[in-house]
Computed example of a mutant assay.
Amino acid sequence: MSNKSAKTKPEVAISATTPDDLRDLRAFCLLVDHGSLTAAAKQLGETKGSVSRRLSRLESALGVPLVRRSPRLVQPTEEGVLYRQRVGRALELLEDATDALKEAQGHPRGRLRVTAPPDFAHTVLAPVFARFCEAHRDISLELILTDRQLDFDAHQLDVALRLASSLRDSSLVALRLLDGQMGFVASPAYLEREGHPRRLADLSEHRVLVLRQESGPSAVHLTPAVVALDGTFLRALALEGVGIAILPLTLVEPELAQGRLVRLLSGHDSPRRFSLYLLHPATPLLPARVRAFRDFMAHALLNQGRGPWGA
């Protein structure tokens, strides 16, 4: 019995969602509401014969008489009254969903789920996110800060901001926002205590702090004192005078400007360059909130990949 019901319901639901059947359902609702073929036909902009055929087609598909007809009056059957109530709610929900979608396409609103690397979110991206939230108050920004490459479908993402030397081929649309480079930095206290390296070979005599994916310059063999995934953590160690950190230069721009960190071996920066990419699904009907975020980020960051980011 339950298997039969489970099989029947999807078939009815599928057949009831075609465009013609939706108009048949609307014709039925109007017919019940007005009790008149003439009134229903006028509302639909059709003839009485067309409305009558719609009703017959619907009753035939359902296998249930929905109305009793007389020359002067159309009255719903008991089954027709119940069906009108449920179908009416479904049509209202469909109309609400359609209106909401049209409104969303015109004005950016709703939840925007974004993943971004923690280091850059805390330093470079946070001020930009703040300005975006101020400019688009109808958008609720939900951030997932991680270095992992999350799956768009599994994590219900709208946008991903990723750091990479290059991107693998994918079905996602990618916009390169910034280009950057790794550099060597240390605190004045460390340099006063341990001395300044003048050549790459001098690094072998220093405590070096590296990101896990950054092996350091290939011209010299290093045994790192600290290896971590978090650039913000390595920056904090460098500020404490633990050693020389190899970090994205953008992460330490304020500290360099304030003299709390010193850039070293500027002519021998790590050859590893990277870019910040914005990715979103490839769809011709991109939600307005995603378009707004993409365009805002591009305007804020696209031309800032020179100067402090470069060598």
Rank of each mutant, 00 (worst) to 15 (best):
R260W: 07
L249R: 04
A164L: 03
R207T: 06
A130E: 15
L191I: 09
A116F: 02
V32M: 08
D230W: 08
T223S: 14
F296E: 07
A100E: 02
H221A: 12
T47E: 10
S2W: 08
A225I: 04
D153E: 15
D138E: 15
C133P: 02
L251W: 06
A186Q: 03
K4G: 10
Q181G: 11
G106R: 10
L66C: 05
R260M: 08
L222Q: 01
A238D: 06
L264I: 13
L112Y: 00
P19F: 09
F152S: 05
H196Q: 11
F152P: 00
T18V: 13
R86Q: 14
L279R: 06
R207I: 02
L278E: 05
S60T: 14
Q181K: 11
P127Y: 12
S270M: 09
S36D: 11
K4M: 13
V173H: 10
L249Q: 06
D119N: 12
P71I: 10
A121F: 04
R176C: 15
V128T: 06
R273I: 07
L150W: 02
R273K: 12
A282H: 12
T232G: 13
A201Y: 03
W309A: 01
Q304S: 11
V51K: 04
C133N: 10
V87A: 09
L239T: 07
A16G: 15
P117C: 07
D138V: 01
G110C: 05
T250V: 13
F28I: 10
L55I: 14
A154N: 12
T123N: 14
Y277C: 03
P217N: 10
L203Q: 01
G110P: 01
A39Q: 14
G195C: 05
A189N: 07
E255M: 11
L191P: 04
R273D: 08
V227G: 03
A174S: 11
L177D: 04
M297S: 07
P10F: 08
R193G: 01
G195P: 02
L203M: 06
S218D: 13
M182V: 07
R198Q: 15
R113I: 00
P254H: 10
E11P: 00
R23K: 14
L167C: 09
R72H: 12
D169G: 03
T232S: 11
Q304V: 03
S171R: 14
V208D: 02
D230K: 13
L161T: 03
S215G: 11
T146V: 08
P287C: 09
T223L: 15
T283F: 04
H122Y: 13
L58G: 00
S52C: 05
L73N: 12
K42R: 15
L73C: 07
I139Q: 00
G106C: 10
P76H: 10
Y190V: 05
R294D: 04
S70T: 12
F274G: 06
R148N: 11
L163P: 05
L125V: 07
F129W: 15
G180S: 12
A160G: 04
A236V: 10
D147C: 06
D96P: 06
D158L: 01
P117V: 07
F120K: 06
E78P: 00
S56I: 10
S52G: 05
R131S: 11
R26V: 02
L200V: 09
D96T: 15
V210D: 02
A6F: 05
P188K: 10
H107R: 05
L239A: 01
V227L: 13
I14L: 12
V220L: 12
E59C: 02
E46D: 05
H34N: 13
R272E: 14
S215L: 09
